[in-house]
Simulated assay, not measured.
Amino acid sequence: MLLHCVFLQFADRYAEAERKEVLRDLGTLKGEVDGMLQYHHGPNLDFESKTPEHKDGFVILFRDREAHLAYERHPKHVRLSARLVEMCVGGADGIVVYDIACEGDTSSQST
């Protein structure tokens, strides 16, 4: 599995409604891209005060890299990602992406 994590520094000139719309629209790809298993988005609560400039983000769980590639090539994703770049401070510089290879569920392990 692959966890695609995206953190956004939207430019102030974009209203919250515009920000939420593009994030919501990305979620509609879940029904269109085989292997796109989960999609979650929301504001960065930044409890540790480490990333105040990245106020919003989303994560997608993919079955595998092939599903991620299908998502990357999907015409709706191409259009929406271009919109995100346009909406962020410094374009692509206002976007941080982490792709994490999930090595298993450790939720039942005690620490």
Rank of each mutant, 00 (worst) to 15 (best):
M1I: 02
L3M: 12
V6C: 13
F7I: 04
F7N: 04
F7M: 08
L8A: 09
L8P: 07
Q9I: 00
A11G: 05
R13W: 03
Y14C: 07
Y14F: 15
A15G: 07
E16D: 15
A17I: 01
E18P: 00
K20E: 15
K20L: 15
E21D: 12
V22I: 14
V22K: 10
V22T: 14
L23A: 01
L23Y: 02
L23C: 08
L26N: 07
L26I: 06
V33C: 10
G35N: 00
M36P: 06
M36A: 15
M36Q: 05
M36H: 11
L37G: 02
L37Q: 12
L37F: 03
L37D: 08
Y39Q: 02
Y39S: 08
H40E: 11
H40L: 13
G42E: 08
G42T: 03
P43D: 04
N44A: 11
N44E: 04
D46H: 05
D46L: 05
F47Y: 00
F47A: 13
E48V: 03
K50L: 11
K50D: 09
T51R: 15
T51I: 11
P52W: 13
P52T: 07
E53A: 09
E53L: 04
K55W: 00
D56W: 15
G57D: 03
G57T: 04
F58R: 01
F62M: 10
F62K: 14
F62E: 14
R63E: 15
D64M: 11
D64H: 01
D64F: 04
D64W: 08
R65D: 13
E66A: 15
E66W: 02
E66H: 04
A67L: 08
A67H: 10
A67G: 00
H68L: 14
L69T: 12
A70S: 09
E72A: 11
V78F: 02
V78L: 07
L80M: 12
L80C: 03
L80T: 08
L80V: 00
S81F: 13
A82P: 05
V85C: 04
C88I: 01
C88K: 14
C88E: 14
V89T: 01
V89Q: 13
G90S: 13
G91Q: 08
G91D: 09
A92Y: 06
D93L: 15
G94Q: 10
G94C: 14
I95Y: 02
Y98P: 02
Y98K: 10
D99N: 13
I100K: 06
I100G: 05
A101H: 09
C102N: 13
C102M: 13
E103Q: 09
E103K: 10
S107A: 11
S108V: 03
S108Q: 11
Q109W: 07
Q109D: 09
T111R: 11
